[in-house]
């Protein structure tokens, strides 16, 4: 499959994860989110930016419980819990947020 950003096609796999990580942009994130019926708020962006920083530092997308713990450490306990993150990303804070953040599917997600 593919997304279209400003008339340019961005290739993704059958689950919607983009193939070339360098293709990511904020407008693309909005388009992926829309295809998942999500409107991105600042709270979503906070998680997306966190995931991209995590990937830059460790070269992996974190598993959900690692993400939850790390968000708690960085953004506070009111955000580092399953309810908060699932409310933002109903299809899974790791899997769905990673897709929107232009990262591969999380490592350690079974």
């Amino acid at each position: 499959m593919a997304y279209e950003v400003n008339g340019k096609a961005v290739t993704a796999d059958e689950e919607g994860y983009i193939v070339n990580l360098a293709d990511w942009s904020e407008p693309l994130a909005e388009i992926i989110a829309k295809s998942e019926s999500l409107d991105l708020t600042e709270n979503h962006w906070e998680v997306i930016r966190f995931l991209r920083e995590y990937y830059n530092e460790f070269q992996i997308a974190p598993a959900v419980r690692v993400l939850t713990k790390a968000i708690g450490k960085k953004l506070g306990a009111d955000k580092g819990n399953n309810k908060y993150l699932y409310d933002l990303f109903p299809y899974g804070p790791a899997k769905q947020a990673c897709k929107i953040a232009g990262l591969p599917k999380p490592t350690g997600c079974i």
Partner: peptide, 13 residues
Amino acid sequence: KNFSHTYRALDDY
């Protein structure tokens, strides 16, 4: 890919 960085994530796991 430089996966050396990923060993530093083991602690999170």
